[in-house]
């Protein structure tokens, strides 16, 4: 500790390049968004100050609330889908298993694939005329269950959520596996000697011991889902008729397709606070001091 105190100056200088880059490319744009959000601006002409009119218009826009609703679906699908599934598989894989590496690699594969590849592949799988799912259903004589997965507004959001879950399960799988490997053998052995069943050991010992990791995973999950964009942009671009619109997509389309930079910035600011509040609530709910 003492050494650290002496080289404080060096540490600061060492951090400076990173801080500088981070400020210019991350902090500054956020502050700029705040500034633009009270302006009316089409991106080319002069800005004019409009106060909170953008926010007023935003809160009255049903399309925005529609995108919030869809975004909450994505958050729920991620938190309730990705985390439990990943935890389940991680617990299964966390024993001396033949071919462990293969399973781990398979699980992690979707994370490595480019989102565009995933989106296009799943679009083909979901296609109503000759997609894999419908062909399979028809081959099994279940043609009646075949749906226009991405083209039907009742199914499109569900279809997108399934893909989102599939894409990121691997990421949390790896995080959980790493955490599980850090659970000390002695503790588990002690539990065994005391006669605890596998079930009790898992719930009373293993899960509590990696609880902090689970919280981090949930927060990563929420933050990731709130800014989800690329997958849906390629898969449906928010369609059909806005049924898969999420906040980031709504912001993008308002800003760049309709040239409302001020309004789009207002949307960004709202997303910013929305994420902040949600993550605050989650850390409170799940207990344990974070950060």
């Amino acid at each position: 500790m003492q050494a650290a105190g002496k080289t404080k100056g060096a540490i600061i200088i060492g951090l400076l390049p990173a801080i500088l880059i981070y400020s210019v490319f991350a902090i500054l744009p956020i502050i700029q968004s705040f500034y633009y959000s009270v302006m009316e601006w089409n991106g080319f002409s002069d800005m004019s100050f409009v106060g909170l009119a953008n926010f007023q218009a935003l809160f009255q826009d049903t399309l925005f609330w529609n995108s919030v609703k869809n975004n909450i679906y994505v958050v729920l699908a991620s938190v309730l889908g990705q985390v439990p599934i990943a935890l389940f598989i991680a617990l299964l894989l966390n024993r001396k298993l033949k071919g462990l590496k293969i399973f781990r690699t398979i699980g992690f594969l979707p994370v490595v694939l480019s989102t565009v590849v995933i989106s296009l592949t799943w679009s083909l799988i979901y296609n109503s005329e000759n997609g894999l799912i419908n062909e399979l259903l028809r081959a099994l004589g279940l043609g009646g269950l075949a749906q226009n997965w991405l083209g039907d507004t009742n199914w499109s959001m569900i279809a997108v959520c399934v893909t989102v879950i599939w894409q990121f399960v691997g990421l949390y799988l790896i995080i959980f596996l790493a955490a599980l490997q850090n659970v000390p053998e002695e503790v588990l052995e002690a539990a065994k000697i005391d006669g605890a069943s596998e079930w009790t050991t898992t719930w009373k010992i293993t899960v509590p011991m990696i609880w902090d990791t689970i919280i981090v995973a949930v927060i990563l999950c929420i933050a990731g889902s709130l800014k989800t964009f690329d997958l849906i942009y390629v898969m449906t671009n928010g369609g059909p008729s806005h049924s898969t619109d999420v906040m980031a997509l709504y912001m993008f389309n308002e800003t760049f397709s309709q040239l409302q930079y001020g309004y789009g910035s207002a949307v960004s600011v709202v997303i910013f606070f929305f994420s902040l509040i949600l993550i605050f609530i989650v850390t409170k709910l799940l207990g344990r001091k974070m950060l």
């Binding site: 050494a3 002496k6 080289t7 100056g9 060096a10 540490i11 200088i13 060492g14 400076l16 390049p17 500088l20 880059i21």
Partner: peptide, 17 residues
């Protein structure tokens, strides 16, 4: 140690500049 710290730090700044 201290000297190396400073050296590394200034090197980093130099590179980034």
């Amino acid at each position: 140690m201290k000297k190396i710290g400073w050296l590394l730090a200034s090197l980093l700044v130099l590179i980034s500049l």
